[in-house]
Structure formats: C-alpha cells, structure tokens
Amino acid sequence: MSRSSRTVVRVEKATPSTVVPRANPVLVGVVAWCLPGAGHLLMGHLRKAVTFFAVLIAMFAIGLAFGGRLFPFQLGEPLVFLAAIAQWTLAVPRVIAAMAGLGAGNVIAVTYEYGNTFLIVSGLLNALVLLDAVDLATGRKAR
C-alpha cells in the first residue's frame, strides 16, 4: 500500500467540554424544581411536560386527599428530615398546600401511610424529572 492511498480516520471523543448547552441548565433546573414538567416545557417537550405535570400533581393531590402529612425539617428525626427533602422537591405545590392549611396529616386515617407514600414519591419522581430536564439542557441527553 502506498503512502498516498492510506485513509486517516480521526475519531473524536465527545467530552463534556465539547457538549453544546441548549438552554441555561440552572434556569431549567429551577423551573423544573418549582413545577413538575416546567423544565421539559422550557426545552420544547410539550407532551412530556404535560404528562409529568398531570401525573405528579395528581399524585401530590392524592397524597393530601389520603390524609398524608407535609413533613417539617426535623434534624432530630432523620426519616422525617429525608421525607421533608423529598416533599420539597415539588416546591410550588408544597408551598401552596402548606399555605392552604393542607397536609396536617390524619394519623388515624386508614390511608395515612398511603398518603405519605404518594407525597414522598411524587417529590422523588420530580427529582428524576428535574435531572432529565437538566441533562436535556446541557446536551448530555439527545432530543
């Protein structure tokens, strides 16, 4: 093989520095934290945004309707503290519910623990939705 017929293939590896941001990730993260689906809406994913908003708000409302409790930050009670962090991942619904006097927690209700589960899991799922929206904004995730 002659020197001139060689084909040189240069493979460039994608590194974080070469990823082009599509939107301000901080802004996307903040709006996604405030309201479920808002980050995806900002990134132009309307269908996903509507789905996340509808399902996560429904889960939060079901949790309140079941008599679940909005947990305060109590460092003395580690599980309560972690539950509070999870619930605060849905910022605006959490604030509105607290201002409306909801989420006192009906301990004697049959569905009390179910309510807590729905409230906590809706927050944790929104944390995953938030991270997905930030990945879309930074370009780490395609589409």
Binding site: V55, F66, F118
Partner: peptide
C-alpha cells in the same frame, strides 16, 4: 386499589422519562 393507582402513576412517569 391504592397499589394499582400508585403503580399506574409510577409506570407513566418512568415510561415517559
């Protein structure tokens, strides 16, 4: 009933995600 409702909500979010 509550378990089915919970599973449906979680499944929709993960499927969409």
């Amino acid at each position: 009933g509550v378990m089915i409702l919970f599973a449906a909500c979680v499944a929709i979010v993960f499927g969409t995600l």
